[in-house]
Simulated scan of single mutants.
Amino acid sequence: MVLKKTKGGLGKGLGSFGLTGTFKDGHKGGYEVDITKIQPNPNQPRKRFTEDDMTTLVESITKHGLIAPIAVRKVEDHYEIVAGERRWRACQLAGLSKIPVVVRDYTTEEVSEIALVENLQRQNLDPMEEAFGYQYLMDTFKKTQEEIAAIVGRSRSYIANMVRLTQLPECIQEDLIEGELTVGQARPLLALKSEELQRGALAIIKEKELNARQIEQLVKTLQAGKKKLASTQPKATAELRKLMQRLKHSLGAPVDIRLKNTKKIQGTIEVTFKNEEELMRLISYIEGE
């Protein structure tokens, strides 16, 4: 197996783990394993894999097979993926029964670091996956923000700001996941002390399509108590949050229920979709087809 050296990289980079480069001789550096014997890393920071994201890769694997093996480690009676979960999933969609692998001897901590670096290098993570990935390293392996910064090639302040996103209400986190809100738009909301203010500010942001600078000014105004949240819906009760979770589970998509400030129960239900396929699926579901 001959590896090509790569210039630059992200933090330590995958090269420090021996995982960069291409395999000149196909998968002769490893061997084939029954695809059912391979399991994903349960602490993989990337939580969402869609078929749309992998269409081109599936077509390539169907035509040419998997050229570069995935990296795995032996865990009891199966193999756990170290790097290459997206390729493994694409191989499943392509109908492969066996997949080329190279076996590495890594600790659980190293596997977590590799998974985070690999996804960041390929820009596969949404902001919340990235934030919770850093939080996992801090909570589980007692990594400091300085150590994580060195691993991923970021500044300590960047890591600190990303981790703080985990303190935001679920509705704002969902908007970050779906790309409805940028990190620059969401970060100023952390300065607001209550979820009620944060949710109210979010409603105004969406209603007026505010940019990051405008949101910073909105937050300052709210902190000074100079603005009433006319657009703020009543604070979500535990019952309402459970109802939103039920709808999210049934529809397979994020749901937000917004109530009006009236004596009668009135409001709107917002369902988020990210492509035409999801829209048509939701329409079919609603129509009962």
Rank of each mutant, 00 (worst) to 15 (best):
I286Y: 11
V152E: 09
A94N: 07
T62Q: 14
K260F: 15
Q198V: 01
G8L: 01
P45D: 13
V33N: 09
I257R: 06
E51L: 00
K248W: 12
I205L: 02
R154I: 02
Q44F: 01
T232S: 15
K263S: 09
I177H: 04
F273N: 02
L279Q: 13
V102H: 08
K28N: 05
V58Q: 10
K24W: 12
I148R: 11
V271S: 07
T62M: 12
T237C: 04
N211A: 02
G8Y: 03
I61C: 08
E109Q: 14
D25R: 04
P234R: 02
Q145N: 03
S112P: 10
T108G: 04
Q167D: 15
A238C: 00
R87F: 00
R46Y: 02
L247Q: 02
L93F: 08
E276C: 04
V75N: 11
G9L: 01
I159G: 06
R154C: 01
E80P: 05
E32P: 03
T6V: 10
V255N: 07
I114M: 05
D53Q: 14
Y134H: 03
E113I: 10
S60V: 04
P100G: 10
H64Y: 13
F49D: 00
Q185H: 03
M244H: 05
E277D: 07
Y79H: 08
I148D: 11
L279S: 14
R86W: 10
C171D: 13
L96Q: 11
S194R: 03
I99A: 09
Q185A: 07
R241K: 14
G26D: 10
A131Q: 13
K274E: 13
L165K: 12
D53C: 06
T237P: 08
Q92W: 04
T140P: 04
A131R: 12
A191H: 09
S284K: 11
L240K: 01
A150C: 01
T20R: 13
P188G: 01
H78N: 15
R156G: 06
I67E: 14
R87G: 01
E289R: 15
K220T: 09
M128F: 00
H78K: 15
V58E: 11
V103R: 06
A94H: 11
L181R: 10
G225F: 03
V271L: 08
Q39W: 15
E147R: 01
K12A: 08
L192I: 10
F23I: 00
E76P: 01
V152K: 00
L120D: 03
A83E: 15
R122Y: 10
L137H: 13
Y158E: 11
E109A: 12
A253I: 05
P45Y: 12
T140Y: 00
D126A: 06
D25I: 03
K235Y: 12
T108S: 08
D175R: 15
A203I: 00
V219L: 08
R199E: 15
L116D: 03
P169Q: 14
V183R: 13
G184K: 01
T237D: 04
A68I: 02
S112F: 05
T62L: 13
S60Q: 12
L3A: 10
T140Q: 14
E170F: 07
N275S: 11
L19D: 10
Q145V: 01
P45H: 11
V101N: 14
L192D: 07
